[in-house]
């Protein structure tokens, strides 16, 4: 029940794009067409769902203070390597993206081609690194971090697909020249984020 609650909270109430501003660059750049937005959303769900639990292992068994007690070596058990977490998380993310890319290319070539350039690009998507950093800051357990990873990816996908639909809808609207494109998209995102705030208070 707690896990379902966490998932609902992460997708709707604390949406990673609309409440925490993470992944804005790709959110703005890849939301011109619904197809690309869907592809990117799927890729983000996959990668976040894999990297958050993976980074949980790294954090819990290697980086945290006293994390290496399982080695049985006194000197290692006393180490606190948490200052390395940024570097190791980004390395894990880059490797995971690479592996996901190779696996998709080998077994699901169709999906791989529809994702195209987006797979390598999400290495530098702040939503991915942000997911892992929030996992550390909020001290999730393994199950929680797996649920958190998948559902924050789902939140991103939901937001980017809906903004892509909105942008398609307003394509022929009469907007002042300075507001066209990025400006209007920011304001639409603001309105969407306001709408998502109505979910606050839902508690299962």
């Amino acid at each position: 029940m707690d896990l379902i609650n966490l998932a609902v909270k992460t997708i709707f109430i604390e949406n990673i794009v609309l409440a925490y501003f993470l992944g804005m660059c790709s959110f703005l750049a890849c939301s011109k067409k619904i197809e690309t937005a869907t592809g990117l959303g799927m890729a983000v769900i996959c990668v976040l769902g894999l990297t958050v639990p993976f980074n949980w292992f790294i954090e819990t068994y290697f980086l945290m203070e006293g994390a290496m007690a399982w080695t049985g070596v006194q000197a290692l058990a006393a180490l606190d390597l948490s200052f390395l977490n940024l570097l190791s998380f980004i390395a894990v993310i880059a490797c995971t993206v690479q592996v996901v890319e190779m696996v998709l290319d080998r077994f699901f070539p169709k999906l791989y081609h529809s994702l195209g350039i987006f797979l390598p690009l999400i290495t530098v998507n702040c939503a991915i690194l942000g997911g892992s950093l929030f996992m550390v800051e909020r001290q999730y357990t393994l199950a929680e971090s797996a649920v958190y990873g998948v559902s924050s990816g789902a939140g991103f996908a939901l937001a980017i697909v809906s903004i892509a639909a909105l942008r398609k809808k307003i394509r022929y609207s009469d907007i002042p020249p300075g507001l066209q494109g990025l400006g209007m998209t920011m304001i639409l995102t603001g309105l969407m984020s306001m709408a998502f705030m109505c979910f606050a208070g839902i508690d299962l």
């Binding site: 925490y20 501003f21 400006g183 304001i187 603001g190 306001m194």
Partner: peptide, 19 residues
């Protein structure tokens, strides 16, 4: 103070700056 405010204000700044 909440998230929508940031989006709206940035949208308006972009509008002014581009104009």
């Amino acid at each position: 103070v909440l998230a929508p405010g940031a989006f709206l204000i940035l949208g308006i700044i972009i509008w002014i700056q581009r104009t």
